[in-house]
Write a protein that binds this DNA or RNA. Structure first.
Lengths: 241, 241
DNA sequence: CGAAAAAATATGTCTAGACTTAATTTCGCG
DNA sequence: CGCGAAATTAAGTCTAGACATATTTTTTCG
C-alpha cells in the first residue's frame, strides 16, 4: 500500500517481530529480553540469525546489548536516521532538471583561523578557495564555498575547476576515510542572496562538510541550499526494485 | 590521537583494506572487484566474513553489489551519514546544563490542511496540538510545535503534558515503526523569536519529524533549534569505551 | 539469425558448531 | 562482612558448508 517491503528474510522477520513486541508493550523499556539462544529456539532458527536480527535493532538504537549482561530495550530509544548526500548534479538531474554550474571565484588563499582549527592545519596555510553555484533549469539550487588542501589531494593542482565540477572531481579523485558533517541555519549574506537569487536575511539551510584521508584534511565546504529546500532521510534500506 | 578505533574484527579489517585500495586508486570507480570467494582466499577467511565486510561498504554507499553481476565500486560514491536524534532532556543534560521545559499551549484543534496531507488524515480531524519550549540552564534551547493523534496513541488522553514532557512520553509510550524527518531553515516568526529569546527573521534550523505505527500517524512535530545550533553526524559506529 | 531454453555464476542467506571476550555472579578466605 | 579470585553466562565473531535467487552467458533449435 505504501512502500515496497524491504525484502523478506528470517533475520528481518525476527527483527520485525521483536520490534512489534516492544511497540505492543509486551516487552517494556529497560527490560531484558530473552537471550539469543532462547529466541533461536522460539523462532526455530540458528543463533546467528537471531544475532543478526538483534544487531539491526541495536544499530537503530532500539536495543542495548552487552556481553554477558544481555539485551535490553533501550531506556531512551534514541533513533538514528540516515541521510544520503548525493552529488549535486545527480540530485538535480534526478529531479528532472537540466544541470549547470558556474564557478564564481577560485584562488590560492591563506586559511582563515576559524577554518584552520576545524581542519587541524596552521592558520595562513595556503589552500585553494573556490565558490560555485549549481543550477537546475537555470535556477540556483545551491551555493558552495570550498577550501581544498592540495597536500591531501594529489593531482589537484592540475585540475581545472573553472570547467570541472569540484564536488564531482573530489568524489572521483579524492575519496575520503572520514567525514564530519553538520546542518545549521544562517541568514543569507548579501553575497549569498545575490548568488541564490534571493534577499539578504533569508533563512538558508547550511550543510558543512569536512573530509579527511591519511594525508590530512582534504576539503571543507559550506553548502547553502536555496530557500525552502529540505533534506530528508531515506527510509530503512531499500533494495533495488 | 583522534577517535577510539571502532574495535577490530576480521570483517572490519577487510572492509578497511578494501576501502584503502579504492582510495589508493588500486581499484577504480566502476570497476569490478574480485568476488567474495577470491577475497576470502586472499584474506584467508571464510566467505561469510568477506560478505559481511563488503555489505558494510555497500551500506555506506561505496560499493554496488548485484547477484551474479558481482561487486563494483559505486560510480557516484554517494555517501550516507547517520544522525542521532536524542531526547531533548538527554541532550541538554549531557551538555552539563540543567533541564527544564514549559508548555506554552495545549488544546484539541482541527488539523490544518497542509498537515493533513502530510499525515494522510482528513483535514479538520481533531488532534491534540501543543507547543513547548525546552531550556538548558534557563536559556531556551529548542521549541517544539506538535500535533498528536489520539487514535494512534492509546493512553494519550490521560497523559498530562502540562507536567510531563511530550517528547519523552511519546518515546516511552508510543514507539513507532516508521519515521520521516527532514531538516530545513526558516526565518523566526514573531512567536518563535519571543519563545527562543531572539529576534524575528533570525535564521532557525528546523527539524520536522512524523512518526507512524500500525494505527496510523502518531505525531508530527516541528522543532526549531536556538539560533546557531548545529546538528552533526556521528562517526561510524562507536562501541562503548 | 534470433529467440527460447539451459547452464553457469556471484551474491544473499542460513545453519550448526566453536571459540573469544566482557561482565556478572558465586565462592572461598581472611 | 568484605574482598578478590574463579566460575558462569550472553553476546561477538568466525568457519565450513549448503541452498536460494537473480542475472548473465551459453547453448540449442526453429
Amino acid at each position: 500500500m505504501t512502500a515496497p517491503p524491504p525484502a523478506a528474510s528470517k533475520a528481518r522477520d525476527i527483527a520485525e517481530a521483536v520490534r512489534r513486541r516492544i511497540i505492543a508493550g509486551e516487552w517494556r523499556q529497560g527490560d531484558r529480553i530473552p537471550d539469543e539462544a532462547d529466541l533461536a529456539v522460539e523462532f526455530a532458527v540458528a543463533r546467528a540469525t537471531v544475532n543478526k536480527a538483534l544487531q539491526m535493532l541495536a544499530d537503530e538504537g532500539l536495543l542495548d546489548r552487552r556481553r554477558r549482561a544481555g539485551t535490553r530495550i533501550a531506556i531512551d530509544p534514541v533513533r538514528r536516521a540516515t541521510f544520503t548526500i548525493a552529488i549535486v548534479r545527480e540530485q538535480i538531474e534526478h529531479a528532472g532538471m537540466a544541470y549547470s554550474h558556474r564557478v564564481v571565484a577560485q584562488r590560492l588563499s591563506p586559511l582563515p583561523a576559524d577554518l584552520a582549527e576545524r581542519l587541524d592545519l596552521a592558520p595562513g596555510t595556503p589552500l585553494v578557495h573556490m565558490r560555485a553555484v549549481h543550477y537546475g533549469d537555470g535556477q540556483p539550487i545551491q551555493l558552495e564555498d570550498r577550501w581544498l588542501n592540495p597536500a591531501a589531494a594529489p593531482g589537484l593542482a592540475g585540475a581545472d575547476f573553472w570547467r570541472l565540477n569540484a564536488n564531482e572531481w573530489l568524489v572521483r579523485n579524492a575519496l575520503y576515510l572520514r567525514a564530519d558533517l553538520a546542518f545549521s541555519a544562517e541568514n543569507a549574506s548579501h553575497r549569498d542572496a545575490r548568488l541564490l537569487h534571493t534577499t539578504p536575511g533569508q533563512a538558508l539551510l547550511i550543510l558543512r562538510r569536512t573530509t579527511w584521508n591519511d594525508l590530512g584534511p582534504i576539503t571543507t565546504v559550506r553548502v547553502a541550499f536555496r530557500p525552502g529546500h529540505a533534506v530528508a532521510n531515506e527510509e530503512p534500506r531499500r533494495r533495488r526494485p
